[in-house]
């Protein structure tokens, strides 16, 4: 058991460092390690876990928590969560600390204004990719754009918007068969 927990940690901790720009970038690697290399899960079990992580609220990287739980119970869930979130936590903490120690330093302002266009481009690119791969075709895309418009124009609670999007999509599919 201890050996299994250690290998979970050794698989997920390095992947944690590789998650730049969002956890979704390492899903293919996770699948390779969990299914092909270590045989902890079958392909179908992995795809089910992935589907659950998509339907659950919270960060998508909690996929790893679920894998840990299915492979080694509660201890596995805890170890895997520490593995995927832990190492980089100290990095961002250190940087946040450094930031508050030297407010307004030139290197800080250069990093902020230099990285902001890159971040904006990355966010828009991720949205573009998501929009193209959305389940549900043009109707889902229309809901996405409508939701953007409503969010920018009003102060609506996002949860209400998610419920409305869900309801409209469901109604269109079930009642009108669009």
């Amino acid at each position: 058991m201890g050996k299994l927990l250690l290998s979970l940690l050794l698989v997920f901790a390095p992947l944690s460092i590789a998650t730049i720009g969002g956890g979704q970038t390492v899903v293919a690697d996770i699948q390779r390690q969990v299914v092909d290399v270590h045989h902890w899960m079958t392909r179908d079990e992995f795809l089910n876990a992935f589907a659950i992580s998509r339907m659950a609220p919270g960060p998508g990287s909690l996929l790893v928590t679920l894998i840990g739980w299915q492979v080694a119970g509660i201890a596995g869930a805890i170890v895997s969560t520490i593995g995927i979130f832990g190492p980089t936590t100290f990095l961002i903490y250190g940087v946040a600390h450094l930031w508050s120690r030297n407010p307004g330093a030139r290197w800080q302002r250069a990093l902020e204004s230099g990285l902001r266009p890159v971040a904006a481009g990355m966010i828009l690119a991720a949205v573009y990719v998501l929009l193209r791969s959305l389940e549900g075709g043009w109707l889902a895309q229309a809901i996405a754009f409508a939701s953007t418009g409503v969010l920018m124009a009003t102060r609506i609670n996002p949860l209400l918007l998610l419920a409305a999007g869900s309801g409209i999509f469901l109604a269109a599919r079930m009642i009108f068969a669009i």
Binding site: R54, I123, A126, V127, L130, L131, L134, E135, G136, L139, A140, Q141, I143, A144, F145, A146, S147, T148, G149, V150, L151, P158, L161, L162, A163, A164, G165, S166, G167, I168, F169, L170
Partner: peptide, 11 residues
């Protein structure tokens, strides 16, 4: 699927 579509609006 519908909720995921609306959530894109947040991003």
């Amino acid at each position: 699927d519908g909720a995921a579509a609306a959530a894109i609006g947040l991003s």
